[in-house]
Design a binder for these strands. Structure first.
Lengths: 204, 204
DNA sequence: CTATTTCAAGACCGATTGGTTCATATATCC
DNA sequence: GGATATATGAACCAATCGGTCTTGAAATAG
């Protein structure tokens, strides 16, 4: 029988900061300023790490950015998974999903924008790693929305002639566009009304 | 009677390059790379100007960028004015308008993205001059689309319950979102189908 | 001709960029 | 204690940033 591998405890001084927390702080900086406009000192200030520690832990600015982007995507997808949960009324789910965008698009939140959209515009086409992540995210988002539309259709809640997958593509483009327009005009009431008007075109 | 002011011809060597052409070349660089990622040498190469000439003619990078942005906006608005011309069938106009976006969103055009969207995400909220321009552009675009929808409604071509101004807001968000999603997935057929499906929800 | 203006090319500027290295202190395990 | 590993912060790096200035040639007007 194989001897259980002894648990090799690390020998020296243990890491004293939370890596994931640092990623999250970095994410917030990239989110607020964009990739190019974020300088090392910004990241050091936000993560409260020394230059040495940051480079030892994450390699370089680009790698840290990818980890921050991954985190942003993970958060967005989990949120969608609860909003568009299968056990929920599909139309209710879609409303919750859109309400989330209205919220993230209002006031200061809106002005901050969306890390994904900003990254897509700034880096896509010039960074394969970014390309993959952005592409996959949009696909994943579309799939979830399409699922909700499908369930709504099965429940007879869609207007005549509405095709779930095409409606999902429309919705994805629309909410990403909201994020763009919301950068300069983040007014909650109008966003909410627009979102409602759009959804009304799809449901019975 | 006042003596006509003598036409003071400039004394020295005349300007040997076309300012507007230089702005346009600069616009293309900013369009492809974004503001921060565009370095002076990029602009010098594109405009074929020397450092001295460029600074004498435009002041600094930021001013040149604003001129490039203004040019981009002017082109976009004139295009819309012909697409959504009053003397045209309004629904035809909307189709032409959307077809333009499909076109600009396909293949290499799509991957290049949109200078306005990129600028909104990169600079809005941190640059008042940019804020003003972006905000005004979206308002102008929305007004034109709303006009077309109004005329369509008057002609009885809109589906029941469609309100022109709200439909216009939806369309503006949608096309800007197309520009975002198109950065990584610029497939013409899908864009066209999505655009058609959306318009179908509005017209009778 | 002279005076004037613009041109391109490049030297030059200080500041900042992302990134590395190193000395030193500290915290853990054995 | 000794060995090991990580922390920090500053020093340091070459490269690049946006921007200025100078030089000398070229093109115009009077």
């Amino acid at each position: 029988m194989r001897r259980a591998a002894p648990v090799q405890l690390p020998r020296g001084r243990p890491r004293s900061f939370d890596t994931e927390a640092a990623v999250e702080r970095a994410m917030n900086v990239f989110w607020s300023r964009g990739y190019h406009a974020t300088a090392l000192p910004d990241l050091l200030r936000a993560t409260k790490l020394s230059r040495g520690s940051l480079y030892a832990a994450f390699g370089d600015k680009h790698s840290l950015f990818l980890r921050a982007l991954d985190r942003y995507i993970a958060i967005a997808l989990t949120r969608m998974d609860t909003e568009l949960d299968h056990r929920r009324e599909p139309v209710e789910g879609l409303r919750a999903y859109l309400a989330g965008y209205v919220d993230r698009n209002s006031g200061a939140n809106g002005r901050r924008g969306c890390l994904l959209v900003a990254t897509a515009m700034e880096l896509a086409g010039r960074d394969v790693e970014v390309d993959r992540r952005i592409g996959n995210f949009f696909k994943a988002m579309e799939a979830r929305v399409a699922g909700a539309f499908s369930r709504a259709k099965a429940a007879g809640q869609l207007a005549d002639g509405v095709e779930p997958s095409s409606a999902a593509r429309i919705l994805v483009c629309f909410v990403e566009g909201l994020r763009v327009v919301g950068k300069t005009a983040p007014t909650r009431i109008i966003s909410q009304a627009t979102v409602d008007a759009l959804l009304d075109r799809f449901i019975r």
